[in-house]
Amino acid sequence: MPNQQKKVIFCMAGVLSFTCALGVVTALGTPLWIKATFLCKTGALLVNASGQELDKFMGEMQYGLFHGEGVRQCGLGARPFRFSYFPDLMKWIPTNCYVSFFFSYILIVGVVTGLSFFLFNGFGLVYKRNICPNTLFVPSIAGSCGCLVMILFASEVKIHHLSEKIANYKEGTYAYKTQSEKYTTSFWVIFICFFVHFLNGLLIRLAGFRFPFAKSKDTETTNVAVDLMY
């Protein structure tokens, strides 16, 4: 492939990586991953509430990987609250949360590193060096970390009932039960960025570079010939 076409492909990949980097940093820093509603069971049972009366006992919250906010209601008016995993919920959150924190930092580093490589190759002549194909596949690591962050966070929410634990944090009198949960903007931003990294891998392959773990046919043929000689 001509060098000019390679530059165009690298610039396209750089633009996608730049958009992805902005989306990832914004998504990880906002509490817009999950929106949940929860019912104050204790208050509803005390007054035997039903139908529209349950609205006075319904609270809601939204949270992300690091912090969140919400409103508790137990028949006596709204009580807004804010929380952060560190240091508020260190003893309450499951181990998966700590692992997802680790992969989220790797995701940010991988996205920014991949962006720098794409831009450097798009406006320079680095793609002529042998080290380039290996460095260009750094975004693949970032994409894998993004996938792991989504899986770990979803398991925390669904398996470990994270929303219910947060709703009952420091609530000795009232007990809350989660009614509904849905993934919101930031979660889907990470999901889209995962596919962007996959698309960047296809663009690199389109530019003529082989994956680091793929061996060329010429090398395999040479190895076979050498083995036959001995």
Rank of each mutant, 00 (worst) to 15 (best):
T185E: 08
M58L: 07
M1E: 04
T178A: 11
F81S: 05
G143N: 08
M150P: 06
T19F: 10
L136Y: 13
M229Q: 14
Y176L: 10
C132L: 10
S104C: 02
N96D: 11
N168D: 09
M90Q: 06
C145T: 04
I131P: 02
C40G: 01
S116T: 13
Y174T: 15
L203D: 06
F153V: 06
S144C: 13
K217L: 15
G201T: 11
T219L: 14
T178M: 07
F66I: 10
H197C: 15
A36S: 11
F38Q: 03
L54D: 01
G122F: 09
G75C: 05
P139T: 04
E164H: 06
V189S: 03
Q52T: 11
L46G: 00
F57G: 03
S140R: 13
Q179Y: 03
T135P: 03
P31G: 01
S50T: 15
C11F: 09
C11V: 09
S84Q: 04
G110D: 04
G43I: 05
D218R: 13
L28E: 06
A154S: 14
S50F: 05
S140C: 08
N121C: 11
A154R: 06
Y176N: 02
G75W: 00
K128I: 06
T37C: 02
K182N: 12
L65H: 05
K177T: 11
E156T: 14
T113S: 06
E220H: 02
P94S: 14
M229V: 15
V189A: 07
G208D: 07
Y98I: 08
L76R: 00
P212K: 09
